[in-house]
Simulated scan of single mutants.
Amino acid sequence: MIVKHVSDIVGTKNEVDTPTWDSRRLIVRSDGIGFSLNHTVIKPGTETQIWYKNHVEAVYCMDGEGEIEVIGGETYPIRPGTLYVLNGHEKHLLRAKSAMTMLCVFDPPLSGTEVHDADGVYPIAQD
């Protein structure tokens, strides 16, 4: 059994804070579960270009408002209770009108320290 609290992650290598988001990686590859789980806060007034070409991500919004724009496609509003899944490896822009608290699941699992590269991509974990 694994029991963690988000406060256990704050200030460790598994908290990744960038100019547009702060992600606490609660379950990571080394936990051996087969997926990873993040508690992420998207910072208000930000836009992040993302492309998970190596991962499938499911995102559930718990708080805040914003939108996701599929590059070359539709734009969808995000508010508490919204779920979106990037099962087609869609390139997208994530915009936060207010701070958005998100629960994010990744397959394959993250190692816990990833940040987006210039194309918005996470590498596949090697640890």
Rank of each mutant, 00 (worst) to 15 (best):
residue 1 M to A: 13
residue 1 M to N: 11
residue 2 I to Q: 08
residue 2 I to E: 04
residue 3 V to Y: 08
residue 3 V to D: 02
residue 4 K to V: 13
residue 4 K to A: 10
residue 6 V to H: 05
residue 7 S to K: 13
residue 7 S to Y: 05
residue 8 D to Y: 06
residue 8 D to T: 07
residue 8 D to I: 07
residue 10 V to L: 01
residue 11 G to R: 09
residue 11 G to E: 09
residue 11 G to W: 11
residue 12 T to W: 08
residue 12 T to S: 14
residue 13 K to Q: 12
residue 15 E to R: 02
residue 16 V to K: 09
residue 19 P to T: 12
residue 19 P to Q: 12
residue 21 W to P: 00
residue 21 W to F: 11
residue 25 R to P: 01
residue 25 R to T: 02
residue 26 L to M: 14
residue 27 I to W: 10
residue 28 V to E: 04
residue 29 R to W: 00
residue 32 G to N: 04
residue 33 I to V: 15
residue 33 I to F: 12
residue 34 G to T: 07
residue 36 S to V: 04
residue 36 S to K: 04
residue 37 L to I: 02
residue 37 L to F: 15
residue 38 N to Y: 00
residue 40 T to W: 03
residue 41 V to I: 15
residue 42 I to P: 00
residue 42 I to H: 12
residue 44 P to F: 11
residue 45 G to A: 06
residue 46 T to N: 05
residue 46 T to L: 05
residue 46 T to P: 05
residue 49 Q to R: 15
residue 50 I to R: 10
residue 52 Y to Q: 12
residue 52 Y to W: 13
residue 53 K to H: 12
residue 53 K to F: 06
residue 54 N to R: 08
residue 55 H to L: 07
residue 56 V to T: 15
residue 57 E to H: 02
residue 57 E to P: 01
residue 58 A to C: 10
residue 59 V to L: 10
residue 59 V to W: 03
residue 59 V to I: 14
residue 60 Y to P: 02
residue 60 Y to W: 13
residue 61 C to I: 14
residue 61 C to T: 11
residue 61 C to V: 15
residue 62 M to L: 15
residue 63 D to C: 00
residue 63 D to E: 15
residue 64 G to Y: 09
residue 64 G to I: 10
residue 65 E to Y: 12
residue 65 E to R: 14
residue 70 V to N: 03
residue 70 V to E: 12
residue 71 I to H: 09
residue 73 G to P: 08
residue 73 G to Y: 06
residue 74 E to Y: 00
residue 75 T to Y: 02
residue 76 Y to V: 03
residue 77 P to W: 04
residue 77 P to R: 10
residue 78 I to C: 03
residue 79 R to A: 11
residue 80 P to D: 05
residue 80 P to N: 06
residue 82 T to M: 07
residue 82 T to L: 05
residue 83 L to C: 14
residue 83 L to I: 15
residue 85 V to P: 08
residue 85 V to A: 10
residue 85 V to F: 06
residue 85 V to C: 13
residue 86 L to K: 12
residue 87 N to V: 01
residue 89 H to L: 00
residue 89 H to F: 07
residue 91 K to Q: 13
residue 93 L to F: 12
residue 93 L to K: 14
residue 93 L to Q: 03
residue 94 L to H: 01
residue 95 R to W: 10
residue 96 A to V: 11
residue 98 S to N: 11
residue 98 S to Y: 04
residue 99 A to P: 09
residue 99 A to H: 09
residue 100 M to R: 05
residue 100 M to T: 04
residue 101 T to F: 02
residue 102 M to A: 11
residue 103 L to T: 04
residue 104 C to A: 13
residue 106 F to G: 08
residue 107 D to E: 14
residue 108 P to H: 04
residue 110 L to E: 06
residue 110 L to R: 10
residue 112 G to Y: 10
residue 113 T to P: 01
residue 113 T to Y: 07
residue 114 E to I: 07
residue 114 E to W: 07
residue 114 E to R: 06
residue 115 V to L: 01
residue 117 D to G: 02
residue 119 D to G: 04
residue 120 G to M: 08
residue 120 G to I: 06
residue 121 V to F: 01
residue 123 P to H: 13
residue 123 P to A: 12
residue 124 I to V: 15
residue 124 I to R: 11
residue 124 I to Q: 07
residue 124 I to P: 02
residue 125 A to M: 05
residue 127 D to S: 11
residue 127 D to N: 14
